[in-house]
Computed example of a mutant assay.
Amino acid sequence: MAREEQGGRGRDRKDEERDSEFVDRLVHINRVAKVVKGGRRFGFAALVVVGDQKGRVGFGHGKAREVPEAIRKATESAKRALIRVPLREGRTLHHDVNGRHGAGRVVLRAAPAGTGIIAGGPMRAVFESLGVHDVVAKSQGSSNPYNMIRATFDALKAEDSPRSVAARRGLKVSVLQSRRPGGEDGTAEG
């Protein structure tokens, strides 16, 4: 028994060193009760957002009989489901984007420097973990944290950088971002 614990500790240290780059935020804990003959049995479900504050973020869900175990499971789940989001100047989004999941709808807007994170509840945790410093977000519809997080991730997956758009179209970034002559009469599309 003692050997297993010691072996586990050594492995955990290596994992901690490797995973120290990640910041995790607990978004929501749900307690459920199962009524049995002897009384109530409580279970806990945790929703956690994990990110490296450099453009990678993920969320996870974990269930267990005790809170710390549920949080640990949710954190591991989040680290397995990381997505990369392109950021403009490492501080904001490249363009405005909408996302939805179920009845939850979110609108994310790029913001000028100094704006800060204007977002509520679960969305704020996502942006802080992602490393976004300036963004304006609005949640419409469901305020369920699970739906809000999933809608936010749906929006972030639709985020595109000018470099990737230029590569997809076979253009140079400078050509893509420059104003075309005659852009005022509606020939140029943005």
Results as ranks from 00 to 15, higher is better:
Glu4Met: 09
Gly8His: 07
Arg9Tyr: 15
Arg9Cys: 03
Arg9Pro: 00
Gly10Glu: 10
Gly10Leu: 15
Gly10Arg: 15
Gly10Lys: 14
Gly10Trp: 10
Asp12Leu: 15
Lys14Thr: 12
Asp15Gly: 08
Glu16Ile: 08
Arg18Val: 10
Arg18Ser: 09
Glu21Asn: 02
Phe22Trp: 15
Phe22Ile: 01
Leu26Ile: 10
Ile29His: 04
Ile29Met: 02
Val36Trp: 11
Val36Gln: 12
Val36Met: 11
Lys37Leu: 12
Arg40Ile: 11
Phe42Trp: 13
Leu47Glu: 11
Leu47Gln: 11
Val48Pro: 03
Gly51Gln: 02
Asp52Gly: 02
Gln53Lys: 15
Gln53Phe: 00
Gly55Thr: 04
Gly55Leu: 02
Arg56Glu: 11
Gly58Phe: 01
Gly58Asp: 04
Phe59His: 13
Gly62Leu: 05
Lys63Ala: 06
Ala64Met: 01
Glu66Asp: 14
Val67Gly: 05
Pro68Cys: 09
Arg72Cys: 02
Ala74Pro: 04
Ala74Cys: 10
Ser77Ala: 14
Arg80Lys: 15
Arg80Met: 09
Ala81Met: 10
Ile83Pro: 01
Ile83Ser: 02
Arg84Leu: 03
Leu87Asp: 04
Arg88Thr: 02
Thr92Pro: 00
Leu93Ile: 08
His94Asn: 11
Asp96Arg: 08
Val97Pro: 00
Asn98Ile: 02
Asn98Phe: 07
Gly99Asp: 10
Gly99Glu: 10
Gly99Pro: 08
His101Ile: 01
Gly102Tyr: 05
Gly102Asn: 04
Ala103Trp: 04
Leu108Lys: 00
Arg109Ile: 01
Ala110Pro: 02
Pro112His: 03
Ala113Pro: 03
Ala113Ile: 07
Gly114Asp: 05
Thr115Ser: 06
Ile117Glu: 06
Ile118Ser: 11
Pro122Gln: 10
Glu128Thr: 11
Ser129Ala: 15
Leu130Lys: 07
Val132Pro: 02
Val132Arg: 01
Val135Arg: 02
Val135Asp: 09
Val135Cys: 13
Ala137Lys: 06
Lys138Glu: 14
Ser143Leu: 14
Ser143Asn: 15
Asn144Val: 09
Asn144Ser: 13
Asn144Pro: 06
Tyr146Asp: 13
Arg150Trp: 08
Thr152Glu: 13
Phe153Asp: 05
Phe153Val: 09
Asp154Tyr: 13
Ala155Met: 13
Leu156Lys: 04
Leu156Gly: 11
Ala158Pro: 01
Asp160His: 15
Asp160Met: 15
Arg163His: 14
Val165His: 07
Arg168Ile: 01
Arg169Ser: 09
Gly170Ser: 07
Gly170Ala: 10
Lys172Thr: 15
Val173Tyr: 08
Ser178Gln: 09
Gly182Glu: 02
Gly182Tyr: 07
Gly183Thr: 00
Glu184Asn: 08
Glu184Trp: 14
Asp185Ile: 01
Gly186Trp: 08
Gly190Val: 13
